[in-house]
Simulated scan of single mutants.
Amino acid sequence: MIYRTPELEPADKAVLGEIEDMRRDLKYRLAEPHRWDGQLRRQLQARAIQGSNSIEGYRASVEDIESIMLGEEPLETSQAVASEIAGYKQALTYVRRLSMARSFGYDKGLLHALNFMMIGHHHDKTPGVVRPGGIYVRDSATGQVVYEGPDAEDVPGLLDELVEWLNAGDLGEPAYVRAAMAHLNLVRIHPWRDGNGRMSRALQTLVLGRDQITTPEFCSIEEWLGEGRTTYDYYDALRDVGRDHWSPHGETLPWVRFCLRAHHMQAQRVRRRLAEAGEVWTLLEEQVDKEGLHTRCVSALYQVFVSRRLRRGTYQAEESLSQGQAARDLRELAARDWLTPYGETKGRFYAPGPRMERIKADFAARVEPLRDPYRTAA
Rank of each mutant, 00 (worst) to 15 (best):
G292Q: 06
G292W: 05
G292Y: 06
L293W: 10
L293G: 06
L293A: 14
H294C: 03
H294P: 00
H294R: 07
H294L: 13
H294W: 07
T295S: 10
T295E: 09
T295P: 09
T295K: 03
T295F: 04
T295I: 03
R296W: 09
R296A: 07
R296E: 04
C297W: 00
C297Q: 10
V298M: 02
V298W: 02
V298G: 04
S299M: 04
S299D: 12
S299V: 14
A300M: 10
A300G: 14
A300C: 10
A300D: 11
L301Y: 05
L301C: 09
L301N: 05
Y302V: 04
Y302M: 14
Y302H: 12
V304T: 14
V304I: 14
F305S: 13
V306E: 15
V306H: 12
S307M: 13
S307V: 09
S307K: 15
R308W: 07
R308D: 15
R309L: 15
R309D: 08
R309N: 10
R309S: 15
R309Q: 15
L310A: 00
L310E: 01
R312N: 06
R312C: 07
G313I: 02
T314G: 07
T314S: 12
T314A: 13
Y315K: 13
Y315C: 09
Y315F: 14
Y315M: 10
Y315H: 12
Q316W: 01
Q316E: 05
Q316C: 00
A317H: 09
A317R: 15
E318F: 00
E318D: 09
E318R: 15
E318Q: 13
E319Q: 14
E319A: 11
E319R: 15
S320N: 11
S320T: 11
L321M: 08
L321N: 05
L321P: 01
L321T: 06
S322C: 03
S322K: 07
Q323V: 10
G324A: 15
G324L: 12
G324H: 11
G324Q: 14
G324N: 12
G324V: 13
G324R: 15
Q325G: 02
A326L: 02
A326F: 02
A326Q: 02
A326E: 00
A327E: 04
A327N: 03
A327W: 01
R328W: 04
R328D: 08
R328Y: 07
R328S: 11
R328T: 12
D329A: 08
D329K: 06
D329R: 06
L330V: 02
L330N: 02
L330D: 02
L330M: 03
R331N: 05
R331H: 05
E332P: 01
E332M: 08
E332F: 00
L333K: 00
L333C: 03
A335S: 13
A335D: 14
A335I: 09
A335E: 14
A335F: 14
A335N: 13
A335K: 13
R336K: 13
R336F: 05
R336H: 07
R336A: 05
R336S: 07
W338R: 09
W338S: 11
W338K: 10
